[in-house]
């Protein structure tokens, strides 16, 4: 199983992905050890979300190599299913189901004991609103529920696309043990918060129009250089 592999969490080399003629990712190369955090910076349309979707095996790479949790993509994608927690722009929750029903559904898909549902709801502070349909919850609450969904199965790798964008400071703090550095999981964090992202990253990647401008240890990157990506 992928979990038993002691290699790096991520190992990308010349990774490419196109949408028709348009290059969404061109030549991304980076390595991330287990338990470490990779911050991905870039303006809108730089390819950050595409990168996350390729790493989640939701999109196929068109060139280069991608090894995720020891599994070569796309051929061995089946090995990492169930080991990835994906928290993107879309919460992947059904609006007509309650938070509890959504998590119970996910628990069935992942073969997770039902007790985990209550624990996950408690961890994100939504026990009291757990039986309300998701459409009745605020955006911040939906994001908390999505974080519970993404971590319900105790994934080894978290793929986070601006996970705190809709959260108030208290909610962001509450989610730290689940999706923050204290979770101990390998993380790929897409964020526009340069200072915050650099503070919690071990490795930083900068993308512009799909091209990788830099990939280096986060301590060697200052916010001013990262800011050039948005110029």
């Amino acid at each position: 199983m992928a979990e038993a592999d002691d290699g790096p969490a991520l190992e990308l080399s010349g990774l490419e992905r196109r949408y028709g003629e348009r290059v969404a990712l061109g030549g991304v190369s980076v390595r991330l050890e287990r338990g470490r955090t990779l911050a991905v910076f870039g303006a809108n349309g730089a390819g950050k979300t595409t990168l996350l979707r390729v790493l989640a095996a939701l999109l196929r790479p068109h060139a280069g190599t991608a090894r995720v949790l020891g599994a070569e993509l796309p051929g061995d994608a089946w090995r990492i299913r169930g080991h990835i927690g994906y928290l993107g722009h879309d919460p992947l929750l059904y609006r007509e189901l309650s938070g509890r029903e959504n998590l119970a559904y996910q628990a069935r898909l992942h073969g997770v004991p039902m007790e985990r549902v209550g624990e996950a709801l408690a961890a994100v502070g939504l026990e009291r609103r757990a039986n309300e349909p998701v459409r009745a919850l605020s955006r911040g609450m939906v994001q908390r529920l999505a974080a519970a969904r993404a971590t319900l199965h105790d994934p080894a790798l978290l793929l986070l696309d601006e996970p705190r964008a809709t959260l108030d400071p208290a909610a962001a703090e509450r989610l730290e043990p689940l999706i923050g550095r204290p979770s101990g999981r390998a993380r790929v964090l897409v964020t526009h918060d340069l200072e915050g992202g650099l503070a919690e990253a071990d490795v930083a990647v900068g993308l512009r129009a799909g091209r990788q401008l830099f990939a280096l240890p986060a301590r060697e990157l200052d916010a001013a250089r990262a800011r050039e990506l948005y110029a």
Partner: peptide
């Protein structure tokens, strides 16, 4: 419709099923 509009297919593809 629900899978398409609410990301259900992605959630399913992420699961070991």
């Amino acid at each position: 419709a629900a899978e398409r509009e609410q990301g259900g297919i992605d959630a399913l593809l992420l699961a070991p099923v």
